[in-house]
């Protein structure tokens, strides 16, 4: 299901998201802030670059959209506004990270995704766009969801 035709959340999805949000509020992942809204299906999360990394003192925003049958299907996670310069983050905000696509499992949560993204940022050694950035972004012009991309995750080091 692409983000262009959002359906309402199923009862199971809404129930689970309520619990995740409750857990988040009691125990937020370090470096993240959930921007309060009444939309359970789209979370906006503020990310603060970890100290002593290339992204220290920088603030970014993640947009997390949940499919109707969450958690059977992964949420769509993209950076909005100015995505951080990173070899796995495209200039349109799409993130090349396996757990968001093929390696998703209902055992993961928004919180665990956020931690993975921060760790991806923190381990980066250079601030640069992916080598295929221009070609990829051109292909995604019509608001294509990153979930429609066939990703290949060739680099685990960064």
């Amino acid at each position: 299901m692409s983000s262009s035709s959002p359906k309402g959340l199923s009862r199971i999805a809404a129930n689970r998201l309520h619990k995740e949000l409750k857990e988040w509020q009691m125990n937020p992942p370090a470096g993240f802030k959930h921007k309060v809204s009444d939309n359970l299906q789209r979370w906006i999360v503020e990310v603060n670059g970890a100290p002593n990394t290339l992204y220290e003192n920088e603030t970014y925003y993640l947009q997390v959209d949940f499919p109707e049958n969450y958690p059977m299907e992964a949420p769509q996670v993209i950076f909005t506004h100015n995505p951080p310069l990173h070899p796995h983050i495209y200039s349109n905000g799409h993130i090349c990270l396996d757990i968001l696509y093929d390696s998703w499992s209902p055992a993961m949560t928004v919180s665990s995704i956020c931690i993975s993204i921060l760790s991806m940022l923190s381990s980066s050694t250079e601030k640069a766009r992916p080598v295929d950035n221009d070609r990829y972004v051109r292909n995604c012009r019509n608001g294509k969801s990153p979930k429609e991309t066939r990703w290949w995750f060739h680099d685990d080091k960064v």
């Binding site: 199923s10 009862r11 199971i12 129930n15 689970r16 619990k19 995740e20 958690p71 059977m72 209902p106 055992a107």
Partner: peptide, 12 residues
Amino acid sequence: CGICYTFRLPDN
């Protein structure tokens, strides 16, 4: 349940 996070499965 480790998937839906509920004890009683809500009927969908």
